[in-house]
Simulated assay, not measured.
Amino acid sequence: MHCKTLMEERWMPRDHKCVSSIRRFIRDLTTSEIAELLVSELTTNALLHTSTPAIRITATREDSFLTVEVHDTSDAIPKIAPADPSATAGRGLAIVQNLSQAWGWRPTPTGKAVWFRLLA
């Protein structure tokens, strides 16, 4: 039997200065530096690529996995784009893909949720 438990939820205004508070939120839930990095990548992507007024972050635990979702109001499908080796940006989703056990996105009634899953 799988037991899925919502650990926490946070709302973040559309402000790049608030990304550090989201990293702290995840750090307080888990000691995983990888989770902290990945939530930072997804939150920054939501700020850069959407016009969402506020971002919702949820963390759930199911068996031995932690799943973090970043919700925004855009229905644009996230895609891993090939990054120019000299570029200073554009690698966020590739980092999420390489460091998580799984990642993806799902539509929501108000936009989408991009998520990652880690062994907790």
Rank of each mutant, 00 (worst) to 15 (best):
K112E: 04
W103Q: 02
D72N: 04
V96Y: 05
R14V: 08
I77E: 11
T58A: 13
I34T: 05
A89P: 03
A35R: 09
C18R: 06
K17I: 12
P53N: 13
R10Q: 11
W11I: 07
M12Q: 12
G104I: 12
I26M: 02
P107K: 10
V114K: 01
T60G: 04
I22L: 12
G111L: 09
T30I: 09
T50R: 02
S20P: 02
P109W: 08
V19A: 10
A81H: 15
P78A: 01
E8A: 15
T60H: 15
A94W: 11
V96P: 05
P109Q: 04
T31Y: 05
A113S: 04
E8Y: 14
S74P: 09
E69S: 14
E8S: 15
C3L: 12
K79C: 12
C18A: 15
S21K: 01
P13W: 08
Q101L: 14
H71E: 02
N98L: 12
M7E: 12
K17C: 03
L6T: 02
S86T: 03
I95W: 11
T110E: 13
D84E: 13
I80A: 05
V70R: 04
N45S: 04
V39A: 03
E9W: 11
E62N: 10
K79M: 09
S86D: 12
L93N: 07
S51A: 13
A76H: 14
Q97E: 07
S100M: 06
M7H: 02
I34H: 11
E69G: 10
T43H: 02
D63G: 14
T30W: 11
S21P: 05
T67Q: 10
G104A: 03
M1C: 12
E62S: 10
